[in-house]
Write a protein that binds this DNA or RNA. Structure first.
Lengths: 204, 204
DNA sequence: CCCAAAATCATCCTTTTGGGTGAAGGAACT
DNA sequence: AGTTCCTTCACCCAAAAGGATGATTTTGGG
């Protein structure tokens, strides 16, 4: 299983400890434990987990669901919910984040292990949902996109700001702006939104 | 939940009964119960279940995994495993069938319900492409979009600027901005691009 | 080695967006 | 008649994005 790095987001230290121990027993590495939303965001930003185990209820709010949305928007990492909630209304909010698993407390080590294994496998299989395909797009354009321009296109597709893109790729905002200018030229558009509209036009 | 028709494949009658009762409690319809591989194949052929709950171990073999492969090849229906097996070797065989869930016995009604809900949602998301539909979006939002807000969403989807939107609808840019603010609030986003990313997340 | 393309970054400036607040008119419902 | 929601619009400010130009460095061929 190639030493999977797991981030645990769980506000109850005892349960977090349990999860930690379970994961260690089956050869996963626990990268970090976040006890609240802020810590989770920081860990996501600074560490690079391979997957996240998310408690929905963090200190009384449904912060876990918000974190899940953020993961989808910004990191596209697999995560599974691990929670004591099971009411339909919460489940409905949770499912739209498309978790790869949903484990209810109390749970066993085996519950956790099998859910993670299934989740990781499904994720790896579904790992090419980069609906965006450089070759496909370039076929249609007079002047082909470079790698960085395509990267920029993917990032605006994800809804990132220039600053976020810059941080993600360890370059300055100026560089991103240059790539975007070139991208806009090649797509004959003048803004992010136009670019996305054009993208739909070209690929569908 | 639109009366989902479930096929149960489980060789132990007592457990099958349990599942049956659980499902009825939460308004699913049990189409049929298959007690072995042959019955399962027949049921798949003749009935049209919306999803299948699969025991891996049927009368001593791993027939459940074979059935899963068949479902993928022939029917492309969502299924979840419900089993007492959890050894890695079996899990490895099971995961390659890409189940939408993997529940270990013993399980509770809530375990079953939440797994099915997640499974069906994830499956529905991968099935049909999307069209911009107000009702569909509102189902997912805490606070529903008004007509104008939805209109604004459609316009940014088309790549229009605020000015273009204002001209199109014969109002001032200020009005458009107000609608956009409200839209962003309801979608929990902070920009057009994020709104579109969220839109994909919610609908596609 | 040289060239061209690509990637990096800067500076300056303009336009567009986003965010907050407030307010007026109308429709709908009680 | 009162209340709530939606729509309309204004003003202000801050942040982000867009546009133009030029420069340096890296990279990959020929």
């Amino acid at each position: 299983m190639a030493n999977i790095q797991v981030l645990i987001v769980e506000d109850e230290p005892l349960i977090a400890e349990d999860i930690c121990e379970y994961l260690s027993n089956v050869d996963y590495t626990v990268l970090d434990i976040a006890y609240n939303k802020a810590q989770a965001l920081k860990a996501l930003e600074q560490q690079s987990p391979d997957m996240i185990i998310l408690d929905i209820n963090l200190g009384g709010n449904l912060d876990g669901i918000e974190i899940a949305h953020l993961i989808n928007q910004k990191y596209q990492l697999p995560f599974i919910f691990l929670t004591s909630y099971s009411h339909k209304s919460i489940l409905d909010q949770a499912k739209v984040t498309r978790p790869l698993g949903y484990i209810l407390k109390p749970f066993t080590e085996k519950d956790l292990f099998s859910s993670i294994e299934i989740a990781l496998y499904n994720f790896s299989q579904h790992a090419q949902p980069h609906n965006l395909n450089l070759e496909r797009i370039n076929q249609v354009l007079l002047s082909p996109l470079t790698e960085k321009e395509f990267q920029a296109l993917q990032d605006i597709y994800l809804g990132l700001t220039n600053k976020q893109m810059a941080e993600k790729h360890f370059v300055t905002v100026n560089t991103i702006k240059t790539h975007l200018q070139n991208l806009y030229d090649k797509l004959s558009v003048g803004s992010r939104s136009e670019a996305m509209a054009k993208l739909r036009e070209l690929t569908n």
